[in-house]
Design a binder for these strands. Structure first.
Length: 685
DNA sequence: GCGGATCAC
DNA sequence: TATGGTGATCCGC
C-alpha cells in the first residue's frame, strides 16, 4: 500500500493534492487564499520528512478504515436497512422532543488573540503579517498573515515560505493571561457562571440579562463586545443561539470583529443547519469529516438526518446520537457548576538542534543530579525531570493518582502509551519515577523524540464506582448536552466525592469554575502558567493571588529543566544505552561499552573525546559518558547512511514498526535485537 | 484496565 | 534545521 503511494507520487502531476493537511480547511480569514499554492508549498516543505511519512502512514490507515466501513455498508440487506431506518426515525424523534429553546447562549471568541495582544504592546506590528510562535510551531497568526495561508498549528518555517515577510513573535504567556483576565471581568458582568473554554473564548448564558433588562440578545452581544474593546483594546466576535454548540458555530460566521444571532426558533435553526458543512461543528474534525464524506456522502449537517439509518447501522449509539443532534441543531443548554480534572500530565519534545557545548553542560548537570539522585541511570534524565515537574504540579493541587501512563513518540512520530494501575495512590516524584522507569525500560531500546508522563484515577475520583450517575436516559443525555461529546460532558457529576481533596488544597476555592484548558499549548515557557493548571475561581478575585504566588517558583524550576532537556545525542542513548539493572540480557552491550571506555579515558578520568573530567570514583558516570559518545557515534553513522539510503529501507522500517506495535510478544522479539550488531541500529525506528 | 485514535485550543 | 502540550473521550479489546 505504501509502495503504491510512492508510485502515485511519481506519476501524478500534482502530488500535493493528495497530501491532506489541516491548514486549508475553511476557517475565518482564509477566504481568498490560494489554497492550491498553500497545499503545494506545505507539501514541498514536508515531503520526505519523518513527520510527512508518519502522516502518510496515518492517512493509509484511515483509508483502510473507510474501505472497511464501505464494505460493511454494502453488506446491509434491505431488511437491515428498513430496520435501521425505523430505529433512526424513532431516535431522531426522541431527540427532537428534548429540544430546549428556553435559554440564550452567547459564545465570545477573541480575534487572533495572541497576535492581537502582541500588536497592542508593539504597535509597529500593526498592519504587517505576523504570527506568534517559533520556526517549529505557530500558535496564531494575524489576519494579514492569514491572507498568505499562514495558520495556527503550522510550523513557522513553512509559514515563512508562504510569506517571507512574516514576523515571528515568541509567545509571552503572562501577557495573554493578563488580557484574558480583563476580558473575563467583562464576561462576568453578563454571566457570573460563564464557562471559560480557553484563554480567548467563553460561553455565557445571557438568558437572565436579556430578560431583566428587556433587551434583545443582539444588543447584549454588541454591548459586551464594545465593553471588551473599551477595556482591552482588543476585538472579539460573538455568536448567539439557543445552545452552546450553535453559539460556537455562530461566533465564527462574522469573524473578525462581528457577531451573528440565530433566533430561538426551530425553523430558523433547521434552515441554518441545513447547508452547514459538518466540519464547522465542534467535535467533527478532519478524520470524521473524511469518513462521513467518503463512506456516506455526508457533507452538510442536514444530511446527518437523511442518512440516519446508515449512521445507526455503522456507528455506536452514542456516536449516532451525536450525529443526529448535529443534524437537528441540538446542543448543551445547561450551566455546569464545575468540572474536575481527570488527569494531569507533562510531556516534552526534544530539540534536535543542540549546541555541542550546551550539550556537554547538560551532561555535566546530569551527572551532578545523577549523583545526588543516587543510582538513577543517566538516560532516564528526562523521565526524572518530568516526574519531578509532574509531582510538583500534583502537589500544588493536592492530587494523588493510581494510574501512571508513559507516553513515547518515536523518532518516526509513532505514539505509544504504556500504563500501570497501582494498588496505592501516589504523587511523589520518587514513586512516579520508580514506575515510569519500569515502563520506560520495558520499551528500550527505542529512539524517542518525546517523553510524557500522565497520572489519572485520582484519590476521590469515584466516577467509576458510580456508573448510575452517568448512565442517563436518552432525554437526559441530550438535554444535559452529553451527546455533544465535548469536554465538560461530565460536568453534571456531583462534587461531593472531591471535597476532601479540595478542602485540603489552599490554592482551590470551593465552588470554583475550572479552566483545565487554559494552558497555552504553544508556549515553550508554559510552565509559567501555573495558575491555569490549577483550578481558578472566576467568581472570586482571590484567583489572582494564586496566580502570582506560583509563577516564580515554576519559572526557575522550568529554566533548570529546559536546560536539561532535549538533545539528539540523548536520544541516541535510548538506543545504545546499557541499563544498570543487572539484567543478563544487557551484559553484552555493557561489555562492548567497556571496551569503548578503555579507549576513551585518559589517566582514568579525562575523556579523550570531549575533555570532560570525571574522578576515578565516578565509575558509573564514566560508563554513562562513554555510552553517550558511543551512541553519538552510532547516530552519526546512522544519519550518514540514512542520507544515502534507498526507499526499500524505509519500507523495511515501517514493517518493523507495524509488527512491533502489534503485540507484546513482538516487543520481546525486538528486545532480542540487542544481540544484533551495529546494523540493528539502522533498521529500527 | 489498556492502548490507539480523535478532537479542541 | 525545523511539525507542540494538556486534557478529555470513545472504541475495541
Amino acid at each position: 500500500m505504501e509502495g503504491s503511494e510512492g508510485n502515485s507520487d511519481a506519476v501524478s502531476p500534482h502530488p500535493w493534492q493528495s497530501y491532506n493537511t489541516v491548514y486549508t480547511t475553511a476557517k475565518a480569514g482564509m477566504e481568498g487564499v490560494d489554497k492550491e499554492k498553500v497545499q503545494r508549498v506545505v507539501y514541498e516543505m514536508s515531503k520526505g520528512s519523518k513527520y510527512f511519512q508518519n502522516e502518510e502512514r496515518k492517512e493509509a490507515f484511515i483509508k483502510q478504515k473507510i474501505d472497511n466501513m464501505r464494505l460493511q455498508f454494502s453488506k446491509l440487506s434491505h431488511s437491515d436497512l428498513s430496520h435501521y431506518q425505523k430505529v433512526a426515525e424513532r431516535r431522531i424523534l426522541e431527540l427532537e422532543a428534548s429540544r430546549d429553546l428556553s435559554r440564550i447562549w452567547l459564545h465570545v471568541d477573541m480575534d487572533a488573540f495572541y497576535a492581537a495582544v502582541e500588536t497592542l504592546s508593539n504597535p509597529m506590528l500593526k498592519g504587517k503579517p505576523m504570527a506568534v510562535g517559533s520556526m517549529s510551531m505557530l500558535s496564531t497568526a494575524n489576519y494579514e498573515a492569514r491572507k498568505f495561508g499562514v495558520r495556527s498549528a503550522m510550523p513557522g518555517f513553512i509559514a515563512r515560505k508562504l510569506c517571507p515577510e512574516l514576523i515571528l513573535v515568541p509567545t509571552d504567556f503572562k501577557k495573554y493571561t493578563h488580557y484574558s483576565d480583563l476580558t473575563r471581568k467583562v464576561f462576568q458582568r453578563y454571566d457570573p457562571n460563564f464557562i471559560a473554554g480557553s484563554l480567548d473564548e467563553a460561553y455565557l448564558d445571557i438568558t437572565e440579562v436579556c430578560r431583566e433588562r428587556n433587551v434583545k440578545s443582539e444588543e447584549i452581544a454588541q454591548e459586551l463586545r464594545d465593553s471588551v474593546h473599551e477595556e482591552t483594546g482588543l476585538t472579539c466576535s460573538a455568536g448567539v443561539a439557543s445552545n452552546r454548540l450553535l453559539a460556537k458555530v455562530c461566533s465564527d460566521i462574522n469573524k473578525p470583529n462581528g457577531q451573528y444571532v440565530l433566533p430561538n426558533d426551530r425553523l430558523a435553526i433547521m434552515t441554518f443547519i441545513s447547508s452547514l458543512p459538518i466540519r464547522k461543528i465542534g467535535g467533527i474534525g478532519k478524520v470524521t469529516e473524511h469518513i462521513l464524506k467518503e463512506v456516506f456522502g455526508i457533507n452538510t449537517c442536514e444530511q446527518m438526518l437523511d442518512k440516519g439509518s446508515y449512521l445507526c447501522a455503522l456507528f455506536s449509539q452514542s456516536t449516532a446520537d451525536f450525529f443526529y443532534s448535529v443534524g437537528l441543531g441540538l446542543g448543551k443548554t445547561d450551566s455546569p457548576q464545575a468540572s474536575f480534572r481527570k488527569s494531569i500530565s507533562n510531556e516534552r519534545t526534544f530539540s534536535a538542534t543542540e549546541d555541542e557545548v550546551l550539550l556537554q553542560k547538560k551532561l555535566d548537570k546530569c551527572l551532578v543530579i545523577l549523583n545526588h539522585k543516587k543510582d538513577e541511570p543517566c538516560k532516564l534524565m528526562f523521565a526524572v525531570e518530568l516526574a519531578e515537574m509532574l509531582s510538583t504540579d500534583m502537589q500544588k493541587e493536592g492530587l494523588h493518582g493510581r494510574t501512571l501512563t508513559l507516553k513515547l513518540k518515536t523518532a518516526s512520530f509513532e505514539v505509544r502509551n504504556r500504563a500501570v494501575t497501582l494498588q496505592n495512590y501516589i504523587n511523589s516524584s520518587e514513586d512516579i519515577l520508580k514506575h515510569a522507569s519500569k515502563l520506560l525500560k520495558a520499551e528500550l531500546p527505542v529512539s524517542v523524540r518525546l517523553i510524557g508522563l500522565r497520572v489519572s484515577q485520582f484519590n476521590g475520583d469515584k466516577s467509576g464506582a458510580t456508573p448510575d450517575r452517568t448512565q442517563k436516559t436518552i432525554t437526559n443525555f441530550i438535554t444535559s448536552g452529553e451527546a455533544n461529546r465535548k469536554k465538560d460532558s461530565f460536568s453534571d457529576v456531583t462534587d461531593h466525592d472531591f471535597i476532601s481533596d479540595i478542602e485540603t488544597d489552599p490554592s482551590i476555592d470551593v465552588g470554583h469554575t475550572s479552566q483545565l484548558d487554559s494552558r497555552d499549548p504553544f508556549d515553550g515557557n508554559h510552565s509559567l502558567d501555573v495558575n491555569h493548571q490549577s483550578c481558578t475561581l472566576w467568581k472570586n478575585d482571590g484567583a489572582e493571588k494564586v496566580q502570582t504566588s506560583g509563577n516564580d517558583a515554576a519559572s526557575s524550576h522550568h529554566s533548570a529543566c529546559t536546560e536539561m532537556l532535549g538533545s539528539t545525542s540523548f536520544q541516541g542513548q535510548f538506543e545504545g544505552e546499557n541499563v544498570n539493572d543487572g539484567s543478563n540480557l544487557l551484559e553484552e552491550d555493557r561489555l562492548n561499552s567497556c571496551q569503548e571506555t578503555t579507549m576513551l579515558w585518559l589517566n582514568d578520568y579525562k575523556c579523550s573525546l570531549c575533555g570532560i573530567e570525571l574522578p576515578p570514583s565516578f565509575v558509573e558516570e564514566r560508563l554513562e559518558h562513554s555510552d553517550f559518545h558511543f551512541a553519538e557515534k552510532l547516530q552519526k553513522e546512522e544519519s550518514s547512511i540514512r542520507q544515502t539510503s534507498i526507499p526499500i529501507q524505509s519500507q523495511d522500517q515501517k514493517h518493523r514498526i507495524n509488527r512491533q506495535s502489534k503485540s507484546k510478544k513482538q516487543k520481546l522479539s525486538q528486545r532480542e535485537g540487542r544481540y544484533t550488531p551495529i546494523d540493528y541500529f539502522f533498521v529500527k525506528e
